[in-house]
Each structure stands twice: as structure tokens, then as C-alpha cells.
Design a protein around this nucleic acid. Sequence first.
DNA 1: CCGAGAATAAAAACGATTATCATTAACAGC
DNA 2: GCTGTTAATGATAATCGTTTTTATTCTCGG
Lengths: 146, 146
Amino acid sequence: MTQEQDQQPRGTRVRGTKQASALASALTSLPGFCSAQEIHAELRRRGETVGLTTVYRHLQVLSETGAVDTIRDPSGEILYRQCGSTVHHHHLTCRVCGSSVEVEGRAVEQWAEKVAAEAGFTAVDHTVELFGLCPGHSASPMEPPA
Amino acid sequence: MTQEQDQQPRGTRVRGTKQASALASALTSLPGFCSAQEIHAELRRRGETVGLTTVYRHLQVLSETGAVDTIRDPSGEILYRQCGSTVHHHHLTCRVCGSSVEVEGRAVEQWAEKVAAEAGFTAVDHTVELFGLCPGHSASPMEPPA
DNA sequence: CCGAGAATAAAAACGATTATCATTAACAGC
DNA sequence: GCTGTTAATGATAATCGTTTTTATTCTCGG
């Protein structure tokens, strides 16, 4: 588990980013994608006093920077996950446990560019979300054949 | 939600209400994707007395039926559009005018199935949204002196 | 050490969607 | 054609995630 390790109590540190590091730490510890409010709850659970506003703002900044990756839940909720690579990619997320696998989106990007070019569209942005059942949750014996 | 009683219909499943036809008519007249509230506003503009609840309910039913296609705005808002084909497909939508082009998603579906199989995932559902600038709105970075 | 300025956090605002429930209207039978 | 049953309707309020507001706190620079 992660225990609060006071690295720099009060001194040489980037501008008022105690909450930022706490947020980053929480993000690292959280396994898969999770909502902003879940992250906030996790921080609160740790005893960190971080406001929901700050969580949202940092998440927004981090997503713009590319430090975290954002997807959209089927219900429209935004989920965040720490993501080191800044390149564009996609995720395959388990509906049950939330674990996600980074998948290569090269084929999709090529396809997107192709269909965009054929239609004469420019500045095309694409959103691809993949949700499924991970190997550990694929076996559903309680699902009788319809 | 589980009010779907697919018992053998004696004749008509849904009652021929004028709101339903008005909604269908509005959907037909509206060019591209539009939000539920825009559709409601359009109906009101026409003088039709249709409640927002009814608009949402019909839109939901229609989307389940496949009569309308739904996408998600970058802001998370759900947009609807009349769509005759019930097969799974995707859209390339202009950010400016909202016009959309149906694009063939076969390549994406194959890709999705492939990466899902490689990761051992099952029951994978994919969401693909394409937003761009249509030929008429492809503004170059340098605004030409009009 | 003090001040300027940004960052923070609590609460309220906001917007889209959904649930509630009394009322209305459609369809079928008479 | 009229009436009854039953589903559909629709105004309001609730819900939920997100954004904005505003006062306060804190870091940094001088």
C-alpha cells in the first residue's frame, strides 16, 4: 500500500503542487479507469484534503498534457487513467473489473484518415472506445442461452 | 427499464399518437444530428405540443429499435438522427454545420474483433465517433481575406 | 518578513437525463 | 357513436456529473 511519505514537507517543490502529487499518486495506485469523483474519494480515503474542484482541474490539465488518458463511459461519464505515452491510442476496457489494455489504433487511424479523405473532410478527430469482458470475466455460467 | 413485454401483438404495438408522427417528421426535416432538446425546441417551433419527456422517451425507443442513430457529442451530449439502416455503422460529422456522412465501419469492426481476440476479451462493443470539418467548412489556418 | 499572485476548496450553479404521477387520448368493444 | 380500459403524455422535481463562483490559503519573489 502507499503510505503518505512526506518527501518535501515544505520547501523546494514546484509551485503549490502538493495536491498535484497526491493526485498523481492516487492515479498511479488506481488500477484501471476511474471517474473523477472516484479519484476524489480515493484521495479523501487517504486522508488527503483535496477538493473536488482541484481534482477536476488537475485531471483536465493532465489530460491536455497527455499525462492521463480519458475515455467516456457508455453512460457518458468521463474516466481517467494514468498514461505515460502521449501518443494517440485506444483502450480495451473490461466492463466488470475495469482493467484495460492499451491497443494499437494504427489501423483505426488509417481508416479514419481514409474515410475522411474520401468524404473531403479535414481536421478529423476520432473517438474509439472498446468495452468488453476480460479473460477472467468472460466465463459467465449464469448466462443461460436465450 | 424492464417494461418490455414482447408479447404477441394483436395488431399495433404502439399507439398511433400524433406526437410520435410529429417527432418523426421533425427528425426527418432536421438535417444532421441534433440533441433531444433541440428536437423538442423544433417541435415547439412548429406549434406542436410535445413534452420534453415524450421526446426523450420516443428517442430512446427509436434508438433501441434502430430507427434513429445516436452518437455522443465531444461534450458527452447525446445526439440523434434519423437513420433507416439498422445495421451497425458510424458517422463522420462536421463540427460546424452538423452534416454527417455515413461511413463504412467494416475495417473498424474487424480491427476491434482482432484486438479483442488478441487480448482474450469477449463481448466487445465499440464506439467510434468521427468529427471533422466538411469540405464546405474546411477553413485553412490562414484566413483568406474575404 | 511581506506582498502579489496563483492555487485551492467548499458550495452553489448548471445542464442533461430520468423518475414520478395525475391527466389525456387512443383503440376496442358494445 | 359512445364508453371503458389502458397505455401514452407531460409538467415538475430529482439525480448526477461537471463547471463556475468566491473566499481563503499558500508559494514564491523581493
